[in-house]
């Protein structure tokens, strides 16, 4: 054993070692392993931060390079023409927000309802858990498969309904065009399916966290089940539910494939649910593989805008969630 002479335990504890034939101080290799392991863990943890910094830096740098050339028109122009070197992303920004808002309306509502059904004793405990797992499977299916399903199942199924809506309610801006195939409505519907598991899981967590005795108190006063849900559970869990909706919205903003396949990739924005449109993510997916140098610069700018929007929304969601958790601690 090569031990440094200054290490007292070796000499000092030798009395003890005489009694314990086995115990001995860490040898040089174990000491080195201890230090190496600690520094590896620390270094790679810092690596995760560098990774994020790298992504942000690289996107900002690339975007910055062409931002000057494109100018402010980039945000206000609605034409994307690679041959004419005109790049405007206004329709994509509005399209991103519009489809995500619709998805939030449908998927968020369904998600919160599902969370209620799965947390308020409507089903036996086992059935609740099985259904919770099934809902999670929704999130496991790759978005490109939803896209495929959207093209060959959802759009054909929507067509008669869309035609009827256009015929009868065409005077409303929402239904002012015919559904030609891909469009805002099918894209938003698929988006809502995709955010539903997120919303359900987080909202359910918030509802489960409401102390039982609050509900018991309301039942004790003679409230019916839904009175308890509307007056006790939902208000108490509102922070968690709101956070779930915001995080679901964040997911919808960044979702790419279902939109690239279903939204129509048309750089024009209209309020009609039945018209085609575009989103930032779909723009990136559709144009990147064949983009020339100038167009790549413009796409980097679009990526930066997408990054900023999702960062802001996710930060808001996390903030709300943290507040919601803190708010509940007083009740716990």
């Amino acid at each position: 054993m090569a031990q440094p002479a200054t290490k007292q335990p070796v000499s000092g504890l030798s009395e003890a070692s005489r009694r314990s034939p086995i115990a001995r101080p860490p040898d040089a290799w174990q000491g080195a392993f201890e230090r190496a392991f600690r520094w590896t863990a620390c270094g790679l943890a810092a690596g995760v931060v560098l990774l994020l910094a790298g992504v942000v830096f690289e996107v900002v740098r690339r975007a910055g390079g062409s931002m000057g050339k494109l100018g402010f028109a980039f945000l206000t122009d609605s034409v994307w023409d690679a041959n004419g070197d005109r790049f405007g992303i206004l329709p994509s920004i509005v399209g991103t927000l519009y489809t995500s808002a619709l998805a939030l309306l449908i998927g968020g509502g369904l998600g919160v309802t599902t969370a209620i059904v799965l947390s308020q004793g409507f089903l036996p405990r086992r059935a609740e858990l099985v259904m919770k797992n099934v809902i999670e499977l929704l999130a496991a299916i790759p978005s490109v498969v939803y896209g495929l399903w959207g093209i060959y199942v959802l759009i054909p199924a929507l067509r008669p309904i869309a035609d009827l809506l256009h015929e009868k309610l065409g005077f409303l801006p929402l239904f002012s065009t015919k559904l030609s195939g891909p469009g805002i409505l099918p894209a938003s519907l698929v988006l809502s399916i995709m955010i539903l598991p997120t919303v359900t899981a987080i909202a359910r967590e918030g509802m489960v966290a409401v102390p039982r005795r609050l509900a018991a108190a309301a039942y004790g006063l003679g409230a019916t089940r839904w009175e308890v849900i509307f007056r006790v559970i939902l208000p108490t869990a509102r922070g968690g539910i709101f956070g779930a909706l915001v995080l679901g919205f964040g997911r919808a903003l960044g979702e790419t494939m279902a939109l690239a396949m279903l939204v129509g990739n048309t750089n024009r924005f209209g309020w009609s649910l039945l018209s085609p449109g575009n989103t930032l993510s779909a723009l990136l997916a559709n144009h990147f593989p064949e983009a020339g140098e100038v167009e790549v610069g413009a796409l980097m700018c679009a990526a930066l805008v997408l990054l900023l929007i999702t960062l802001a929304v996710n930060a808001l969601g996390s903030l709300i969630m943290r507040r919601a958790r803190r708010g509940l601690t007083g009740l716990g």
Binding site: Q8, P9, G12, L13, E15, A16, R24, P25
Partner: peptide
Amino acid sequence: RFQGQDIYGPDVDPVAVRRS
């Protein structure tokens, strides 16, 4: 003092103490 040696002495490795 563990058999005469202070286990809180300056150069003592706590890991070595725990092994004994």
